[in-house]
Amino acid sequence: MKKLERMLNLVAALLATERPLSRQDLRGKLPHGSYSDNDESFRRTFERDKDELRSMGLPLSVENVPGTDPPLDGYRIRPGDYEADLPALTPAELAALHLASNLVRLDDVPRSDPFWQLGGVAQSDSPQVGAVADVPADDVIRLLMSATAERRIVRFTYNTNSRVVEPHRLVFTRGRWYLAGHDQGPNEARQFRVDRIGGPVDCSEGDAFVRPEDPVDVSIEPAWRYGEDGTLIARLLVHERHIPWVSDFLGPTGVVEHLADGSAIFEEPVSNRAAFRSFVLTFLDGAEVLGPEELRSDIINWLEPLR
């Protein structure tokens, strides 16, 4: 289990308990695999986690576990210790933000930035905690963060087209930033890869919008399912050695036919031909587009100059 996930689970357990929990009690409340099965390894890791929580400024309380003789150290985070910090967030939400803001570092964002202040910062004499993830960020990301939080319309160029977007979600996943929201031009939900935004992003103070109850979320489905090329249903022949991976990636319902030689035919919606072409070519001779002819010809024509 990754460190960030373990630490989030640990903070959740410390917040949820109404009485102090011993080290072993906490071990039992976290998902299996959070800590090593070896007692000494568990003890060392737990002590490091505990020290890091303190160094981040989380109010970890140490008390005697009731009914233990000799007394055992127990741990918890009292929700009341957070209530005055940021009333707009629940104590659990604030603790999670606090932890994430210490373990995930946005490139080029100084510690004085309001993003970090939301989660609280360690005192100046506290030891620095190393981040477990570096997330790229630049002026465009910071502007989109502000626009999303403040519900302000953004304008930018994407695929040479001018866009006017009500930003609902800004998410970093699979190594890239994605923006999801309502595109006012076609009047529909859209998703944009931020690194493909061309030129500056405009975000005017007066252009506010009302966020819907069901905002557009970022989908992590394959990129070729989102685009403006017009949707085609591709028939993809996959060699048997690749079937387990493709089936897991696209979903088992994509298989429409199993052939006698062990290969299989998948059907997959394609709205971004370039993205789908890149996917198919990763299999070299292990996959072939059977149809429709328009999509098959598109890949053949792209490959011809490379012969």
Rank of each mutant, 00 (worst) to 15 (best):
R105S: 08
G254W: 06
D51H: 02
S219H: 06
E18L: 07
Q24W: 00
L232D: 01
V270H: 01
K50N: 09
Y75W: 04
A223S: 08
G286C: 00
P244C: 08
A133C: 06
K3H: 12
P114T: 09
C203V: 09
D261V: 04
D73K: 05
H242G: 01
S297R: 15
D134G: 09
T282I: 00
R174N: 10
F276N: 04
G130E: 14
H32C: 04
R196A: 02
E257M: 09
P212I: 10
V164L: 13
R211A: 11
V154N: 08
T68C: 02
Q117I: 11
R23E: 06
E18T: 14
E268H: 07
L290A: 08
Q128I: 02
V132D: 04
R235L: 03
N102L: 03
R43V: 02
A84R: 11
E166G: 08
S219Y: 06
L237H: 11
Y75G: 02
L94W: 06
G254D: 09
G254L: 07
L295W: 04
E228A: 12
D183K: 11
F115S: 09
Y158P: 00
S55V: 00
L97P: 07
R105F: 04
H239Q: 08
D195L: 10
I299M: 08
R174D: 11
R163T: 12
F46Y: 10
E294V: 15
D183L: 07
S297Y: 05
V135N: 01
L58C: 11
I233A: 01
S101G: 11
L303R: 08
V154C: 14
T90S: 15
E93I: 12
L106C: 06
D51N: 09
F115W: 13
W224G: 08
R78T: 00
D85E: 13
A13G: 01
V256A: 06
L97G: 13
V256Y: 01
M145I: 03
R54M: 11
F156E: 03
N9H: 14
R76T: 03
Q123Y: 02
D183R: 10
G57T: 09
D49H: 07
N161D: 15
S271R: 15
Y158M: 01
Q117F: 03
P114Y: 08
S55K: 10
H98R: 14
S126D: 12
E294R: 12
E240R: 15
A260W: 00
D298Q: 07
F283E: 01
A100E: 15
D73V: 00
R48E: 10
R273C: 02
R163I: 09
S263Q: 04
Q191R: 12
G33V: 11
G206R: 14
R277V: 00
R152D: 12
V171E: 14
P114C: 13
R151I: 02
I141R: 01
L106S: 04
D195H: 14
G206V: 04
L21F: 04
D202N: 07
L21Q: 14
D139F: 00
P87N: 13
L179N: 03
Y178S: 07
F156P: 04
T45R: 15
S263T: 12
V210S: 15
I77N: 06
A189H: 14
L10V: 08
K29F: 05
A223P: 00
L237P: 04
S263V: 03
E257L: 12
P212E: 02
D202A: 10
V270F: 03
T45S: 13
L99N: 05
N9R: 13
